[in-house]
Nucleic acid binder design. Structure first.
Length: 926
RNA sequence: GGCCCCGUAACUCAGAGGUAGAGUGGUAGCAUUACAAGCUACGUGCCGUGGGUUCAAAUCCCACCGGGGCUACCA
């Protein structure tokens, strides 16, 4: 009577293909709105429709799916909300590039037709990344899938805009913003990245009207065309006389003054600053204070405009050189210095951004931010790991108004209408029939669209049909946790907090958990241009070395670096990447996901963890082959028949259950993965499976055998459920074959993913059994060590003797003599009091016993003597250290008594061991 | 410039006052009734450096060195 044996090795491909559709068909990912279970909600960080999966996504999905599956099994109505965002700039750029191939420009097509093209592109390509998430096992509630530009979300976005405007928290202003001259749109501060750059500080003199000059310095000489003042510190003696004097611009001829402002740093440069209000944020502020004119000198694409005199029409790079040359020609050049500076570039395209004066829409963030900050301070939302709290506070303390308008076509068009007659701007939920001010019907909708992050900020409630007070909204707001990378703490998390608190009067999530950034084994950011980006799909499915190299060649690696990158790939991936399956990748990521800022992921190590899944597979294979088809009793029915070994493994299992569950509740994914790994491999496979074999493999039936069969199934069933959130596919594949399946089916449970998560059970704890088996393991290991050390050929039968003074210990070892003989490969085992060590024997001294292996003729006297001397020396050193400690009056007086007692006990043990070692050495004639 | 994080075995990392750990790799041996994606055994640590606090420091404090990140207006 045997069950059909499992295949020899675990095949992730088959399991993944089988179970994802199974779960989907049964609707197990779906969280019903009308459930009476408590809700547990995670909103997925919206991938861009243009995006493809990278390791960061893989980590994100792994963590969130672990959380969701764990809570679902624990009885929550777990909703993992899927969606994508429309990624304004990125998507528009992609489609424009596609059009360029056909030789079409966006403006030739017109707004409406262009948007049709973008929608078409989105329908065709926008779900690729979602399909990839399925490959990782993500248990997202697919029927609820939303898109930031769909009707439901768009309605919420417009409503939010109008309400914020009504409340005076959103306004239109003529202000300086960051402008990308290539994307031709405004950017928020967060969309500007700062790159270190070696620039120069270039000095020149402005001649003062009526004689004299004042020397200023700049890193951007071309901006002098827009200068409308020179500022000095009011208390600066050097410039006391020039304040109020006028300057005639050497090129444009306009006149401006030397002003005094305490913002100026007297120590820096000459102590005099040129002021360009239209092209510098600080200068803009100063212009407001002093009511200075703001002269814009740039066109949208960063050319000098008509205000730039003879330089008009030149682009900014050429203009810089030309301005410098012209200044030199006038004899006004006053020197240069190297100057390290950070330069702002567009996050999307890398182009140097310009501060640019224009009409834009802004959200007044300060009042919103204060509420959000207060919520965090009050613990209504926790930011985890805690180290990010400071970063959060720093940003919130310094928050500035948020520029939300973008000069793009792809996005939510701003619900504001400009009167062509009186220029009145009307914000409304739908197009007004006439201008409320002048009744003109000549209205034009604002052409700009909203920042993608504006719509993302509404995500936790826009997806639930806000502003309708829908049942979804009541059921699923607020969420449990927002899990994402720390790089979008401000882009997204902070803004959801602000909007959630404002519109819903409640935080959008109880916890913010920020996961580490995935880097390569050297700690470098994984990026295609570095050539070190590994596609998660290649880890799951495997890829040969040559294919990997070919793929990397298609990445934008700079030509001169390519040979180096290829060499590295050849070395690092000499054998290519073996197929580790989704579970192998997930387990690896989980075990790396400590509460830190970086995960250094060495891809070849993933293969090491796929071995763990195979180990589980094979342990199950063994059990299923040997359990046979007869009915297996539930554990409860065999509790009275459990031997020490069963009681031990069940006690250890309970530790693992408790540890794993707690770790998952505390976002300690590494601890959870480790606890399962250790238990399953080092305890269950290494010891229990071996210990149970004699009983299990014996002929016939017996209560003992029934107990073993029940225990094996119970341990497998429990550990699979324990591991399921981390490795969903393999656990389902195996769990479906266990004899316990029938009992679950009776309760309507036909999948591990809806089975209950294991709970710690104090009645399974058994300290006595743990101690006994720990001793057994020590003895077996000691014998094995001695055998190996003396090169006893494997298979050669020898005897051994355990000498212990403790009667209980002796009794226990006697009881285990069959097990010890088998595991240590001994012909016989003697258990006796500690006494004389026979000659020609190797001895292992444990704290509670000596393990003696007689090795007549086999023993190398010199080697054994040397080994013993080394041991004695080591023990002696430790002994001395302890003695010194215990002689220290302060220690005895101040240390807690239990610490002192512990050290005293240890001193005695070490003393015994050392004496035994010395005795043995003496007997060997040393 | 300010702030934050990290320096522990060859590698990747846990440990956060009380005997320095795991996994991987390495070395040697092994076809032992599930597993060679396996089994058994074995090693190395001035816990970055220098001070301090403490009976006791890898752990707490200070400074420094090295690596990384965030942030900022030094024109």
């Amino acid at each position: 009577m045997t069950t059909e044996p499992l295949e020899k090795a675990y095949d992730p491909r088959a399991a993944e293909a089988r179970w994802y559709p199974f779960w989907m068909e049964r609707g197990y990912f779906h969280a019903p709105t009308d459930s009476d279970k408590p809700p547990y909600v995670i909103m997925i960080p919206l991938p861009n429709v243009t995006g493809t999966l990278h390791m960061g996504h893989a980590l994100m999905v792994t963590i969130q799916d672990i959380l969701i599956r764990h809570r679902r099994m624990k009885g929550f109505n777990a909703l993992w909300m899927p969606g994508t965002d429309h990624a304004g700039i990125a998507t528009q750029v992609v489609v424009e590039r596609e059009l360029a191939k056909e030789g079409i420009k966006r403006h030739e097509l017109g707004r409406e037709q262009f948007l049709e093209r973008v929608w078409a592109w989105k329908e065709k390509n926008g779900n690729r990344i979602l399909e990839q998430l399925k490959g990782l096992g993500a248990s997202l509630d697919w029927p609820r899938l939303r898109f930031t530009m769909d009707e439901v979300c768009s309605r919420a976005v417009l409503e939010a805009f109008v309400r914020l405007h009504e409340e005076g928290l959103l306004y239109r202003g003529h202000r300086l913003i960051n402008w990308c001259p290539r994307c031709l749109t405004a950017l928020s501060n967060e969309e500007v990245e700062h790159e270190d750059h070696q620039g120069e500080m270039w000095s020149f003199a402005y001649p003062l009207d009526g004689g004299g000059e004042i020397v200023v310095a700049t890193t951007r000489p071309e901006t002098m065309l827009g200068d409308t003042a020179v500022a000095v510190h009011p208390d600066d003696e050097r410039y006391r006389d020039v304040v109020g004097r006028t300057i005639t611009h050497p090129f444009t001829g306009h006149k401006f003054e030397v002003i005094a402002d305490s913002y100026v740093d007297r120590e820096f440069g000459t102590g005099a600053v040129k002021i360009t209000p239209a092209h510098d944020f600080n200068d803009f502020e100063m212009a407001l204070r002093h009511d200075l004119p703001k002269i814009n000198i740039l066109t949208e694409d960063a050319r000098i405009n008509e205000n730039g005199a003879q330089f008009a029409g030149q682009d900014r790079i050429a203009a810089r050189a030309a301005v410098k040359k012209a200044i030199e020609d006038k004899g006004l050049y006053r020197g240069r210095q190297d100057h390290a500076m950070a330069i702002g570039v567009c996050q999307r395209c890398g182009t140097v951004v310009e501060p640019y004066l224009s009409w834009q829409w802004f959200v007044k963030c300060r009042p919103l931010a204060e509420v959000a900050q207060q919520a965090v301070r009050a613990g209504r939302t926790r930011i985890l790991p805690e180290l990010w709290k400071k970063t959060w506070d720093h940003w919130m303390d310094n928050i500035q108004d948020w520029c939300i308008s973008r000069q793009l076509w792809w996005g939510h068009q701003i619900p504001a209408w400009h009167c062509q007659n009186c220029r009145e701007v009307t914000v409304a939920r739908s197009a007004p029939g006439a201008c409320p001010k002048c009744q003109s019907t000549s209205l034009r909708q604002d052409e700009d669209v909203l920042d993608t992050w504006f719509s993302s900020a509404m995500w936790p409630f826009s997806t639930l049909r806000w502003p309708d007070q829908s049942t979804d909204l009541r059921a699923f707001y607020p969420g449990a946790v927002l899990e994402t990378g720390f790089d979008i703490l401000f882009f997204w998390v902070a803004r959801m907090m602000m909007m959630g608190l404002h519109f819903m009067r409640d935080v959008p999530f109880a916890d913010v958990y920020l996961h580490p950034m995935v880097r390569d084994a050297q700690g470098r950011k994984m990026s295609k241009s570095l050539g070190n980006a590994i596609d998660p799909i290649d880890v799951i499915e495997g890829i040969s070395r040559d294919e990997l190299i070919a793929k990397t060649r298609t990445y934008p690696v700079p030509q001169h670096k390519l040979p180096q990158v290829i060499d590295w790939l050849k070395k690092e991936y000499a054998e290519g990447i073996p197929a580790s399956g989704a579970d192998g990748l997930r387990f690896t990521l989980a075990i790396h996901a400590a509460q830190v800022t970086d995960v250094k992921l060495s891809i070849p190590r993933v293969a090491g963890y796929r071995a763990f899944l195979n180990k589980i597979w094979n342990a199950a294979r063994f059990a299923l082959m040997r359990i046979g088809d007869d009915v297996v009793l539930p554990l409860a029915d065999v509790r009275a028949q459990l031997s020490v070994a069963e009681r031990w493994i069940l006690s250890r299992l309970d530790h693992a259950v408790e540890e794993t569950d707690r770790a998952l509740l505390e976002y300690r994914f590494d601890d959870a993965a480790n606890a399962i790994y250790r238990f399953f491999w080092s305890e269950f496979c290494d010891w229990y499976v071996e210990l149970c074999k004699p009983t299990l493999l014996a002929d016939g039936d017996s209560p003992a055998k029934a107990a073993v069969r029940a225990t094996l199934v119970h341990v497998l069933d429990t550990s699979l459920r324990l591991l399921h959130p981390i490795c969903p596919f393999a656990t389902e594949e195996i769990w479906q074959k266990l004899p316990s399946l029938g009992r679950y089916r009776e309760q309507g449970i036909d999948s591990i993913m809806i089975a209950p998560y294991p709970q710690a059970d104090p009645t399974l704890r058994d300290a006595a059994a743990e101690k006994e088996i720990a001793r057994l393991i020590e003895v077996v290991t000691a014998v094995r060590s001695l055998r190996a050390e003396y090169n006893v050929p494997a298979g050669k039968k020898i005897g051994a003797c355990v000498q212990a003074d403790d009667g209980f210990a002796r009794e226990a070892m006697l009881g285990f003599s069959d097990e010890i003989r088998k595991l240590a490969d001994l012909s016989q085992l003697v258990v006796e009091r500690r006494g004389e060590t026979p000659r020609e024997s190797a001895v292992g001294h444990l704290e509670w016993c000596d393990v003696v292996v007689p090795l007549a003729g086999a023993i190398d006297l010199d080697a054994e003597q040397a080994r013993l001397r080394k041991e004695i020396e080591k023990t002696g050193k430790e002994l001395e250290k302890l003695q010194r400690k215990l002689r220290n009056e302060d220690f005895l007086a101040k240390a807690p008594p239990d610490v002192v007692d512990k050290d005293r006990g240890r001193l005695a043990e070490l003393g015994t061991i050392k004496a035994k070692l010395a005795d043995t050495l003496q007997r060997l004639g040393g």
